[in-house]
């Protein structure tokens, strides 16, 4: 089974984790017109590549960010949200 490293709990099989989707930073919703907002909500960055994603280590309920290559399934880096620079 694929391994993922939780920044707190260490390296565990992927079955201990829940995928939370790509990290998407949405700017002030009220500043966007209807069309732009709808695109923000529905449209995805669908092509493969290195993406920042939410993952949760379920037994400890730890959410963190994983930088993962969605073409190869290699996780390049994991860190707690907002602590990217501290690593």
């Amino acid at each position: 089974m694929k391994l993922i490293t939780c920044p707190i709990n260490g390296t565990r099989p992927v079955s201990e984790f829940v995928y939370g989707g790509e990290l998407r930073l949405i700017s002030d919703p009220q500043a966007l017109d209807d069309q732009t907002w709808a695109e923000q909500v529905f449209y995805r960055n669908g092509a493969p590549g290195i993406k920042k994603e939410w993952w949760c280590h379920v037994p400890s309920n730890t959410w963190f960010i994983a930088e993962r290559n969605t073409a190869t399934d290699e996780t390049l880096n994991t860190y707690l949200y907002g602590e990217e620079d501290s690593r």
Binding site: G20, C56, V58, N61, W63, L80
Partner: peptide
């Protein structure tokens, strides 16, 4: 719901 609230709280701080 608990996961999602935890995630949102992680993000909103």
């Amino acid at each position: 719901v608990y996961w999602e609230l935890s995630r949102l709280n992680t993000m909103w701080r």
